[in-house]
């Protein structure tokens, strides 16, 4: 089964995704696909918080900041993979190793890798960020990033069995079934 989760900042996406992955895994293998490349202390603190959150849940952490489909060969592909987050993956693909110019093929590669995980994994849960509803005229780079992330979100939402939106910890089911 595949689940796509999006919503605003601090709405409880990661925590819901963890519970969801645990349930899908049953007693089986479960992998946390860590995507963030920490760039400062704020990032490192955030990672520590996430690690503490999932302590005791039996996740094996796979560090895959790019080429997300590699997680399938790093672990047992029949297991359950929690990919958190699509947002970070796209950023890492767009600006590899401190590149200044965005890699224009990043969104397509990212989408293909994620769809491969959705197809081939035993179960997969994807977390993205909903950054599309404010009244700001962004610069061209940011606007490009928003458009690219949205195109990946739409592809994943179309491919996944269940699509959930989170707001203040509350779930709206946009596709499929969900119950805790």
């Amino acid at each position: 089964m595949t689940v796509f989760i999006s919503g605003g900042v601090k709405s409880g996406k990661s925590s819901l995704a963890q519970r969801c992955a645990l349930r899908l895994a049953g007693g089986g293998k479960r992998y946390y696909v860590a995507t963030m490349l920490p760039s400062d202390d704020e990032d490192r603190a955030r990672i520590r918080r996430h690690v503490a959150d999932r302590a005791g849940m039996g996740f094996e952490t796979l560090e895959v900041p790019r080429r997300v489909e590699d997680c399938l060969s790093l672990g047992d592909h029949r297991g359950t993979f929690l990919v958190d987050s699509v947002t970070a993956l796209l950023l890492n693909e767009m600006y590899p190793d401190g590149a200044v110019e965005a890699d224009t093929g990043a969104a397509r590669r990212c989408a293909e890798g994620l769809l491969k995980v959705a197809m081939d994994a035993g179960n997969a849960v994807f977390v993205s960020d909903y950054i599309y509803s404010d009244a700001i005229k962004y610069d061209a780079f940011t606007e490009r990033y928003r458009a690219d992330l949205a195109s990946i979100d739409r592809a994943l939402a179309a491919a996944c069995d269940t699509v959930l939106e989170l707001c203040a910890g509350c779930v709206t089911v946009h596709k499929g079934v969900w119950g805790e």
Binding site: G8, Y132, S133, D134, A135, I136
Partner: peptide
């Protein structure tokens, strides 16, 4: 839907929203 962000800084953007 342009209604979920922080209150925009410029007066025109606020009026627009």
């Amino acid at each position: 839907d342009i209604f979920c962000g922080v209150v925009p800084l410029g007066a025109e953007n606020r009026a627009w929203r």
